[in-house]
């Protein structure tokens, strides 16, 4: 079946050619930099870098469109929730209050709150491209090999790779199950009311879990039969050596991470305050 979500997309690009472990390290560095900092300048820079990485990877937006929409939906939900539960959090952080519109009770809109939520949104936007790219540009087997190389036990590396490897399979299962249920009259298309749709869709979960459990059993038996886990070490078919570009990528991520730390000291904290 076509266009599976979150599966490896084969292409020839700089990002694809990077070592799997490099991508993991860069992803961790970039995302923790974006997570820790609330400094708009740092975040904007990471967003900028992320967009460049995305363009370099030659992955098309269309190919990850659905998952992007999904994340965007949560981003909006998150923003609404923040405003509902903490409409004055920005004022609290930045120690100032510049009102735009007066609202009922504490729901007055302030520049501080807007700025705070802008930073949250930037965090999302900064982390999404590296996270998605890490999944769609890393071949599962190659990734396991690299993980093992940086010292993680091969059993663990292998389970991570199997998990990644089965994302498309489980999606295919899901589609088949969903369609067979729909053919039996359990409607999940737009013709049905949303509440009922969700209820109907949840009925797929049981067969999906069951068939996945079946798969787990089969896989583990097959691996045992092939002698997996017998020796302390194993060789990797798709191991890729660390090349110069890997070093460059890791150093660049380290620099960005370092920059975030420097800005933290300059700001005396995680926030950049333009209001004082």
């Amino acid at each position: 079946m076509s266009n599976e979500l979150l599966s490896f997309i084969e292409r020839d690009s700089v990002i694809h050619r990077l070592n799997g472990a490099t991508k993991l390290i860069c992803f961790i560095l970039l995302s923790s930099a974006a997570m820790l900092s609330y400094d708009t300048r740092v975040l904007l820079f990471i967003v900028f870098v992320s967009v460049i990485i995305f363009i370099l990877s030659k992955v098309k937006i269309r190919e990850i469109g659905f998952i992007l929409g999904f994340i965007l939906f949560f981003l909006i939900l998150n923003n609404i929730a923040i405003y509902l539960f903490a409409p004055q959090h920005g004022t609290l952080i930045y120690g100032a209050s510049h009102q735009i519109i007066e609202g009922i009770g504490r729901y007055s809109l302030t520049w501080e709150q807007l700025f705070y939520q802008l930073n949250i949104t930037l965090k999302y936007i900064a982390v999404i491209p590296p996270a998605l790219l890490f999944i769609v540009t890393t071949h599962p087997s190659e990734f396991a090999a690299s993980l093992n190389r940086i010292g993680i036990s091969y059993r663990l590396s292998y389970s991570v790779s199997i998990a990644l490897r089965y994302i498309p399979d489980i999606q295919r299962d899901y589609k088949t199950i969903a369609k067979s249920q729909q053919a039996r009259g359990i409607d999940m298309s737009r013709n049905e009311k949303l509440g009922k749709r969700i209820k109907n869709a949840s009925s797929i979960l049981l067969p999906l879990i069951l068939s996945s459990l079946d798969r787990i059993e089969t896989i583990s038996n097959v691996m045992e039969l092939r002698g997996f886990g017998k020796r302390k070490k194993r060789t990797w078919y798709s191991y890729r050596k660390f090349a110069r570009r890997d070093m460059i990528a890791i150093s660049m991520s380290l620099i960005i991470f370092g920059m975030m730390i420097v800005f933290m000291f300059l700001n005396n904290g995680r926030f950049y305050n333009p209001f004082s």
């Binding site: 299962d173 067979s180 249920q181 067969p207 069951l210 068939s211």
Partner: peptide
Amino acid sequence: EQVGFVLQNPNQMFS
């Protein structure tokens, strides 16, 4: 309602 499709894997059909 016209065509009943029995999948190869019965486990994929039960909910």
